[in-house]
Design a protein around this nucleic acid. Structure first.
Lengths: 145, 145
DNA sequence: CAGTAAGTGAAAAATATTATCATTTGTAAT
DNA sequence: ATTACAAATGATAATATTTTTCACTTACTG
C-alpha cells in the first residue's frame, strides 16, 4: 500500500483544519510505519527531517487525527500511549507483535454471540468492545530460535 | 460474595510479603468495591479510615497485588489507570458500565477460532489477547431514560 | 523480646501531558 | 499578488502521574 498521507491531508482540509508542514510531517511518519509509535517516537522521527517542530505539536496533531478517525490508539497490557495509522476506516482490531511492534489489522472479530449471551445474563446494554491480540510476527518468531 | 481481603492477606504472606496495616487497608478497599478504582481513588477511600497512609504506598501495594495476580487493571479506550479485584483467578474478561464503572467478570471469550484463522493468515504466533466489553448496567440504563 | 530485613512516609525526581501566550502562517477574500 | 484574520506554532510553564531516594519504623523470625 502506498503512502496515503496526501489523500489524508485532504480530509484535514475538509474538516476546516489547515494543512501545515508540521502536520504533513507527522502524517508522513505515521503513514510510513506499520508499527505503533508513541508521541515521543513520532517526535524523534519527525525531527530527522524537520528539526524545528515541537513535541507539543505532535500531541496536538494526534488529537486532531484521532478526532478525525485517522489514527488508532494501541492498547497494550501495560499502557496505551502509542498510535498508528487507521488503515481500514471501518471497525477493526489489531494483531500486534510484542517484539517489534508491527501491527496487522483485521476485521471480523465476531463477538456478537458473546455479546448476546452476556446481555442476556447480565442485563447490560452492551455497546462497544476493545480487542487486541498479541503475538510474535513471523520474522521475530524466527529470530528468537 | 464476602470480603476476601483476609484470605488474600494469606497469599501475601505465602510470597514473603509482610502484612502491614497499610496493605490490609488497600486490600479492604479494593475488595469492597465492584467497580474499577484509580490509585488516586483508592488513596482517598483508604484515607477515610486511615489518614496516615501515603499515595506512594498505594502504588507500591498495587504493584505487588498485580504481581501476585490479585488485582486486574482495567483498560478503557482513553486510558488504563484503574484497578479492581481479580475475582476469578482464571483467564477472564470484564464487562464494564461506562456510567458507574461497575464491573462484571466473565469467562468463555472463545477467541480460539479467530486466533486460528489469524495465525493461518498472518503466520503470527498468537499468545495473548486483551478484551474488554463496555455498556450500561441495568441501573444506569434505567436512570438514563 | 531482640535483631533484621522489609516496609513506610515525605520529599524530590522523572515522566507524560496540557495550558498559556506572543508570534507566525495557511487560507480565502479581495 | 496582497491583505486580513483565524488558526497554528514553539517555548515555557503548569499540571498530572508515577518512580526513586533515604532516613526512620515495624512486622516477623527465632
Amino acid at each position: 500500500m502506498k503512502l496515503t498521507a496526501n489523500k489524508i491531508a485532504g480530509v484535514l482540509r475538509e474538516h476546516g483544519y489547515k494543512l501545515t508542514p508540521q502536520r504533513h510531517a507527522v502524517l508522513k511518519v505515521i503513514a510510513a510505519s506499520y508499527a505503533h509509535l508513541t508521541p515521543e517516537a513520532i517526535y524523534e522521527k519527525v525531527h530527522l527531517e524537520n528539526s524545528d517542530i515541537g513535541l507539543v505539536t505532535i500531541y496536538r496533531t494526534l488529537d486532531i487525527l484521532r478526532e478525525l478517525n485517522l489514527v488508532c490508539r494501541m492498547h497494550a497490557p501495560d499502557g496505551c500511549r502509542s498510535y498508528m495509522m487507521r488503515r481500514p476506516t471501518e471497525h477493526h482490531h489489531h494483531l500486534v507483535c510484542s517484539s517489534c511492534g508491527r501491527v496487522v489489522d483485521f476485521a471480523g472479530c465476531d463477538l456478537v454471540d458473546l455479546e448476546k449471551r452476556l446481555a442476556r445474563e447480565t442485563r447490560f446494554e452492551i455497546n462497544g468492545h476493545l480487542l487486541e491480540l498479541y503475538g510474535l510476527c513471523p520474522d521475530c518468531n524466527l529470530a528468537s530460535r
